[in-house]
Nucleic acid binder design. Structure first.
Ligand SMILES: [Mn+2]
Ligand SMILES: [Mn+2]
Ligand SMILES: [Zn+2]
Ligand SMILES: [Zn+2]
Lengths: 149, 149
DNA sequence: CTCCTTTTGATAATCTTTATCATTCTGATA
DNA sequence: TATCAGAATGATAAAGATTATCAAAAGGAG
């Protein structure tokens, strides 16, 4: 299912309502290609809907995260960052620059990676009796811009 | 180089001193097999050296982390956690339980993984002109204990 | 010993996130 | 349509973690 209406389904039957704040947050995450923090999401929401409070943004991102619609990351700058789980970017992993904090999404070699990871998941699940739901792969280092500087 | 004296070398020539608080923190991380938070490290230090303040623990862990002696993680419980980088555990990755927060180190299949990751690193470094220094691989899910409950 | 730099402890300040609680909204039901 | 219970919200207080400050202490070179 595509288009911005694909979320209605996920809310049906979970006892939660797809309210204006929730839909607004989803739309914002759907448009951006960045990894937004709570206050960044709040700032954008605030432009269109000054009545929506930041507590709702915290609660919404937490809910969407628990629902699996949104992925939560800690890249090391002290604030949580969020990204739509099934975005146009598709499945990908991250390069994190220790110099400037830049986050680079990559999905090169992703087929090879997905294949490798899913095999690994199967082996780990069996060996440790651990039911794996998701994974994150982060590479840390120095980006192109920080090298030339 | 092995044994608890292997750190002296790293400090020589970096302009930093291997002081009592720093050596104490290193020894604590060397002994434990857990991923300790700042306040957990502080609590242990405090038993033997009540004079050492928590600010020093923050500063020490940050320094050791920047020196590469210690690895810093955010597992999602709101506090940073630290582990000796070259410990007896060897290179490993993590399973993180969303139920109880338990962290499981694994190094099964690590040879296959290291081989795969180092190839991937090479390709990514070239393609994105990104100098990779380290990586983290986390699998999230439900642990054995949380399943039987 | 003297000077200069590094390190430290105490504590204030900042920043992010969570908890509270009264109010509003929604949808189901009669 | 009027009623009601649960869900959601906004404002704000509270909690927690981390960082900033600053004066004092410690270490090392000469
Ligand atoms: Mn991303
Ligand atoms: Mn570990
Ligand atoms: Zn950079
Ligand atoms: Zn568990």
């Amino acid at each position: 299912m595509f288009g911005p209406h694909r979320w209605h389904g996920k809310f049906r039957g979970c006892g939660c309502r797809l309210t204006l704040p929730r839909e607004t947050v989803l739309n914002i995450l759907n448009r951006t290609d960045k990894h937004l923090s709570v206050d960044e999401v709040f700032a954008v929401v605030n432009r269109s809907y000054p009545g929506i409070g930041i507590a709702t943004i915290y609660r919404t991102l937490d809910l969407l995260s628990r629902m699996g619609l949104v992925s939560k990351f800690e890249f090391g700058d002290g604030k949580s960052r969020y990204e739509l789980a099934e975005s146009k970017k598709g499945h990908h992993h991250h390069l994190v620059c220790n110099g400037c904090g830049r986050i680079i999404d990559y999905s090169d070699f992703i087929n090879k990676e997905v294949k490798f990871v899913s095999e690994l998941e199967k082996e780990l699940a069996e060996k440790h009796k651990f039911k794996i739901n998701s994974h994150q792969i982060h590479f840390y280092g120095i980006c192109k811009e920080c090298t030339n500087k």
